[in-house]
Structures are given as C-alpha cells and as structure tokens.
Simulated scan of single mutants.
Amino acid sequence: MSERARRLAPVVEMAERAERDAARKLGHCQGLVSQAEVKLGELERYRGDYQQQWISEGQQGVSGQWLMNYQRFLTQLETAIGQQNSSLQWHRENLARARELWQQRYARLEGLRKLVQRYLDEARAAQDKREQKLLDELSQRLNARRDD
C-alpha cells in the first residue's frame, strides 16, 4: 500500500462509520414515517367506519344526546387526524434531512475511496516503471557482456 493511501486509512474508516451511522438514522426515520402513515390510515378508516355508523343509526332515528355525542367524538377524531397529519409531515421532513445527510456522507466516503484507489494506482504505476527500468538496465548489461 502506498504511503499516501496508508495515511488516509483512518480518515476512510471514520467516513465509513459516519456513513453507517447516517444510514442507520435514515432507516430509523423511514420506520417512523411508515408507523405514522399506518396510524393515520387507521384513524381515517375509523372515521369512515364511524361515519358509516351515523348513516345506519340516522336512518333509524337518533336522540339529540346521541347526535351531540357523535358530533363531539367526530370533532375529536378530526383533531386526532389533523395532529397525525402534522406528525407525519414532521417525520417526512426528518426523513428528508436524514436522507440528505446520508447522501452527503456516502458521497464523501466514495470520494475518499476513489482518492485512495488513485493513490494505489499511481503507486502501482510507479512501481511498474521502476521494475521496467531495472529490467531494461539488466537487459543492457547482459547485451553489453555478450558483446564483450
């Protein structure tokens, strides 16, 4: 390994850890978004079921007290849906930030890996050049001895 590539090894390791941490956080945020979407879906289905109950009960006639309770509960349910929508939006924004951070960390890591590879390629090319020069010198010496 070339000296320059060897000196970059700790930096690459740190970048790998940072990228893994960012990927882990991204996965966690994706899970939270999924949970928030499921919860919102459940609340909306529950609201639909509750409204269907209103239609069924309303056809048979309802008391004023039942109607007031229905309206109060429906208002609470709408509030909960609104709050869940806000929560979902907040989680999506966090997910977007986590994705952006992971992309930055990943790009930095890939840049470092390419730099290390370039250093290794340069070192290999320099070594090949030295070996070729040595072989050329040996070949010239052998030819010079044959001529003597």
Results as ranks from 00 to 15, higher is better:
1 M>Q: 05
1 M>R: 03
2 S>A: 08
4 R>G: 00
5 A>M: 02
6 R>E: 03
7 R>K: 09
7 R>M: 01
9 A>M: 02
10 P>N: 04
12 V>L: 08
12 V>D: 02
13 E>C: 00
13 E>A: 07
15 A>P: 00
15 A>L: 03
18 A>R: 05
19 E>V: 04
20 R>V: 12
22 A>L: 02
24 R>M: 13
25 K>V: 15
26 L>Q: 05
31 G>L: 02
32 L>H: 10
32 L>F: 07
33 V>L: 00
35 Q>Y: 15
37 E>N: 05
39 K>C: 09
39 K>V: 09
42 E>G: 10
46 Y>I: 07
47 R>N: 03
48 G>E: 13
50 Y>R: 11
52 Q>C: 09
53 Q>I: 07
55 I>T: 14
55 I>P: 04
55 I>E: 14
56 S>F: 06
59 Q>D: 09
59 Q>G: 14
59 Q>L: 14
60 Q>I: 09
60 Q>W: 13
61 G>A: 04
63 S>K: 06
65 Q>A: 14
65 Q>N: 10
66 W>V: 06
69 N>A: 14
71 Q>N: 14
73 F>E: 14
73 F>Y: 15
74 L>H: 10
75 T>I: 12
77 L>Y: 02
77 L>N: 03
77 L>D: 02
78 E>C: 06
80 A>Q: 09
81 I>F: 03
82 G>W: 02
85 N>R: 14
86 S>C: 12
87 S>R: 10
87 S>W: 13
88 L>E: 03
90 W>S: 15
90 W>G: 14
92 R>K: 13
93 E>T: 10
94 N>F: 06
96 A>V: 10
97 R>A: 12
97 R>K: 11
98 A>W: 06
99 R>Y: 10
101 L>Q: 09
103 Q>Y: 08
104 Q>G: 12
108 R>I: 12
112 L>P: 02
113 R>W: 04
114 K>V: 08
121 D>I: 06
121 D>K: 09
122 E>K: 01
123 A>N: 08
124 R>A: 13
126 A>Y: 00
127 Q>R: 06
128 D>H: 06
129 K>M: 08
133 K>W: 05
134 L>C: 08
136 D>M: 09
136 D>L: 10
137 E>V: 14
137 E>I: 13
140 Q>L: 13
141 R>D: 06
141 R>I: 09
143 N>E: 14
143 N>Q: 14
144 A>E: 11
145 R>N: 15
146 R>F: 10
146 R>D: 12
146 R>W: 12
147 D>H: 15
